[in-house]
Design a protein around this nucleic acid. Structure first.
Length: 160
DNA sequence: CGAAACGGAGTA
DNA sequence: TACTCCGTTTCG
């Protein structure tokens, strides 16, 4: 097992004619994923894919999957973004601008919901309060989703 | 349509 | 310099 990948190193040296096999080269070498970032939640899964084809062959791409919904994320930022704001960063629909959407509707992370928050008056003039957890300000999206979740839980009992 | 991958740019 | 993230594209 685990024979080092030593096969077909360079095929076309001068590369002129002879295009490599047209077969789908989009194959990636399965990596054993020996590395595991500590910033990654214990429940999360990480997958490291090594690019097999193209110019950037050999480049490593990290993919993450959340334990609950098994959604696919491409980067640390994406993961943290999901954990924190709960917003999924999926490509809308290519270069076509969508009319409207509700990304914050179904993105309440119950697991990461803080049990205690401190509301700090961030802007006295505007009377805007911002919830803080562990001395960390929470993004509006986060607690904005609380209302959505609350509404969902209370079954409409919660109203603005 | 969705997922996967390549490519490139930006940043540490 | 190297690594990471994001956008775009292609394949299934």
């Amino acid at each position: 097992m685990a024979s080092s990948s030593n096969s077909n190193l360079m095929q076309s040296r001068e590369g002129v004619s002879q295009e490599a096999p047209k077969e789908s080269e989009r194959c990636v070498t399965s990596d054993v994923t020996p590395k595991r970032p500590k910033w990654l939640p214990d429940d999360w899964e990480m997958e490291v894919r090594t690019r097999r084809s193209g110019k950037s062959a050999g480049m490593k791409d990290r993919y993450y999957y959340d334990p609950k919904f098994h959604r696919c994320f491409r980067s640390k930022k994406d993961v943290e973004n999901f954990i924190q704001t709960g917003t999924i960063r999926r490509n809308k629909s290519r270069t076509k601008a969508s009319s409207n959407e509700n990304p914050e509707s179904e993105s309440f992370d119950f697991k990461n919901c803080p049990t205690k928050v401190s509301w700090v008056l961030s802007s006295f003039a505007e009377k805007s309060w911002t919830p803080h957890v562990n001395n960390e300000a929470l993004p509006k999206s986060t607690w904005n989703s609380w209302a959505v979740a609350m509404e969902d839980i209370c079954g409409g009992a919660y109203k603005s």
